[in-house]
């Protein structure tokens, strides 16, 4: 009945809660309202990117270019703010999203029309999009002082005690959930990833789906580009470098199967939150931030091992006693 509370998500939620409680016992400041809000704000961009990546992975693809798209869209948006600080914030956000859409559409076209493997295409555009920042901006960076207040203040506005950044993430998550669970196309993504041949028999068109998901992934990455730059107050060629791997890690931890067809909004959000809690807990635990990367690597491995065990397809049940035993276990 309740689709969004399956076992894996529940288990991950419990683990996160236990982790937060343990950290809180050690350092009560961590579970203060302020800090929890900070963790949520900090995790919002990762969560949105992970949702976009999840949709791509559902179709058996991968988008390695998200962080580069984010950086380029952020740069272009920041330049606009630098040159026209008088524009309304929607113009900056809009430009970032449009940039993301164009970049995502390029990925999607190469993948769907030419049939080039997604990993090859996005590996190439990963380098190209990031390099374009230098080509476009001449290697200059846009600093906080040059962006103007409108550009920078919007994500930090507080609504019901939480930042607009967080609320944007909530809207994106709801949108993705609505799309994946309540539209034919969204359900089709699961079908294409789960069984491409059967999906074809059902009249679902893989190239169209691919074009769509890579474009959506670009759009969300573009939006995050604006959010990232305005939040951290600087745009240059190296922002979010390597972040695509953190994004994929969040998906894997959240139970998205790299083989396609399996993944949920709730799981992915929890996967992002898991990483967010770890990153924010390290300083509280007085562990150097240098541990962060090693820990997330270990967590990714642990998550894939656990997922693989959960996914492992059993051998056939032919013997009557084996079928009975399996029936009883159910």
């Amino acid at each position: 009945m309740i689709q969004f509370l399956k076992h894996r998500e529940a288990a991950l939620g419990v683990i996160i809660a236990a982790m937060v409680a343990a950290i809180g016992a050690y350092a009560p400041a961590f579970v203060s309202l302020d800090n929890i809000i900070r963790v949520l704000n900090d995790t919002s961009i990762l969560a949105m990117l992970a949702l976009a990546q999840m949709m791509v992975i559902l179709t058996r693809g991968i988008d390695l270019s998200t962080a580069s798209t984010l950086a380029l869209a952020g740069m272009i948006s920041a330049s606009l703010a630098q040159n026209h600080p008088e524009l309304p914030v929607i113009a900056y956000i809009g430009l970032a999203i449009v940039t993301g859409i164009v970049l995502g559409f390029i990925n999607g076209s190469l993948i769907s029309f030419l049939g080039i493997p997604p990993i090859v295409v996005t590996l190439g555009t990963l380098a190209v999009y990031r390099g374009m920042i230098v080509v476009y901006g001449g290697g200059n960076q846009v600093n906080a002082s040059e962006m103007g207040d409108v550009f920078q203040s919007f994500p930090k506005l507080s609504v019901f005690g939480l930042s607009t950044l967080f609320w944007i993430m909530v809207v994106v998550a709801l949108g993705v959930w609505l799309f994946l669970s309540m539209t034919r196309t969204g359900r089709g993504l699961y079908a294409v990833g789960g069984n491409p041949v059967a999906a074809r028999y059902c009249g679902i068109d893989l190239p169209r789906q691919q074009l769509l998901v890579y474009t959506i992934s670009g759009a969300i990455s573009g939006l995050c580009g604006y959010l990232w730059v305005s939040r951290y107050g600087v745009a240059y060629s190296e922002i979010a470098s390597g972040f695509e791997l953190t994004v994929i890690a969040a998906c894997v931890i959240g139970g998205v199967s790299i083989a396609g067809g399996v993944g949920s909004v709730a799981g992915t959000l929890l996967g992002a939150l898991f990483l967010g809690v770890i990153v924010n807990a390290l300083p509280v635990m007085q562990i150097t931030p240098f541990w962060q990367m090693a820990i997330s690597g270990a967590v990714i491995l642990a998550a894939v091992v656990v997922n693989a065990r959960a996914e492992k397809r059993g051998v056939k049940l032919i013997l009557p006693e084996a079928r009975r035993a399996a029936g009883a276990a159910k």
């Binding site: 890690a249 790299i258 240098f290 541990w291 990367m293 090693a294 997330s296 690597g297 990714i300």
Partner: peptide, 19 residues
Amino acid sequence: PSIVVTIGTMSLYRGLAQV
């Protein structure tokens, strides 16, 4: 799947060097 494993060990190995 090797792509996920090596994304994980990529973080792990470089992370250990960083530690």
